[in-house]
């Protein structure tokens, strides 16, 4: 099982990625760096979203909700107490909020654990029945979390949101955590847990008949996704320095859904590939929401047009290219299969 050659290869790849991250942070201009940071956060979110949706096959619509939890927890924990007292305009912050303060990494991790805990609480009712209701429960949760943020100003500063969040999250943080997320996901996939998740996706009854506790496996996948989405949310909050309840809308989830469908549901390489391609492409697609001039005729600005295009892309992919770029396999599997087929055809 333990393959020394592969181990060395992986170490080299990881070191090269880290070197690139360091280089980018030190020498790239701020525009390109901000695109890279977006890609990094998209990658964290898409990879973790892919675990529950693609690998375990349980359709959920949660990322925006869990990202919001992570973002709020992290923001509250890293904003210095004196800043909070000035910021909370509607009501005074609750004592625990006012006094809480810690450094960045533990704050981000707590954001992740908070999201994971909520995921566990949602999993209990949802996975007791077949996964069908997960999508609607998570969709609802994304809206509820906003209602809670608005109605509890002593914790969240209500609709005004939090600002002056310390900008700790640079590309070194985001890039490294994205890399860790990818490695963790790959490690899960190539373990008995990943196999069980795929088994549940392929045929839940047969998986049960193999002795797999499908409730446990689905909950595990869901909690893992939630953890990394919470972490991604914490990074996002610190990157943006301002968060409001309206920011974590369903649009975020929808974009991520397109990412993982394009990359191939179930393929982590695919999710990573799509994050890079679309993270860059979305930036460029912003023109759709601006003034459109065609053949010298001004069509005016159409906010929402970008999302119409998104949904058409998603629908066309579902109808005609459901397997996405990578199918449900990893790049390494595809290469291995290709080599094997070539070898066979030589014989």
């Amino acid at each position: 099982m333990f393959d020394f050659k592969r181990f060395i290869r992986n170490i080299v790849l990881i070191l090269a990625t880290l070197a690139f991250i360091y280089y980018a942070q030190k020498s790239m201009d701020s525009y390109n760096l901000s695109i890279l940071m977006n890609i990094g956060i998209f990658a964290i979110l898409a990879l973790s979203y892919n675990l529950i949706n693609g690998v375990a096959g349980q359709f959920s619509l949660e990322p925006n909700g869990f990202v919001a939890i992570g973002a709020y927890f992290t923001a509250i924990l890293i904003i210095p107490p004196e800043t909070k007292l000035d910021m909370f305009a509607l009501v005074d912050p609750a004592p625990i909020v006012a006094s809480a303060h810690m450094s960045f990494l533990p704050a981000v991790l707590i954001g992740g654990f908070a999201a994971m805990l909520v995921a566990m609480l949602l999993a209990l009712p949802v996975f007791r029945v077949r996964g069908d209701y997960l999508a609607i429960v998570t969709l609802g949760f994304g809206f509820i979390i906003r209602i809670f943020a608005i109605n509890n100003p002593e914790y969240t500063n209500g609709a005004m949101g939090l600002n002056d969040i310390p900008e700790y999250a640079n590309f070194i943080w985001i890039g490294t955590i994205a890399l860790i997320t990818f490695i963790v996901m790959i490690h899960i996939i190539y373990s008995k847990y990943g196999r069980s998740m795929k088994a549940v996706r392929d045929d839940e009854d047969a998986a049960t008949a193999m002795g797999i506790n499908t409730f446990k496996i689905k909950t595990l996948a869901f909690m893992t996704s939630a953890f990394f989405e919470g972490v991604g949310g914490g990074l996002l909050a610190s990157m943006l320095t301002t968060i409001t309840p309206d920011q974590f809308s369903f649009l975020l989830t929808f974009q991520l859904l397109i990412f993982i469908v394009l990359g191939g549901l179930g393929s982590m390489s695919g999710a990573l590939f799509a994050s890079i391609l679309l993270g860059w492409g979305l930036e460029k697609l912003r023109i759709l929401d601006e003034n459109i001039t065609l053949f010298g005729h001004d069509f005016g600005a159409h906010p929402g047009l970008r999302m119409v295009v998104f949904s058409i892309i998603l629908l066309l992919m579902m109808l005609y290219a459901r397997r996405g770029v990578f199918g449900d396999r990893e790049l390494t599997d595809i290469i291995r299969d290709y080599k094997r087929k070539k070898l066979e055809s030589k014989k």
């Binding site: 008995k192 196999r195 795929k198 996706r201 392929d202 045929d203 009854d205 047969a206 193999m210 797999i212």
Partner: peptide, 17 residues
């Protein structure tokens, strides 16, 4: 009812879960 996205080996490995 095999796990259709998985290799023969992985199908068997599920049994050793």
């Amino acid at each position: 009812r095999l796990f259709k996205s998985m290799s023969v080996l992985d199908n068997i490995l599920i049994g050793f879960d």
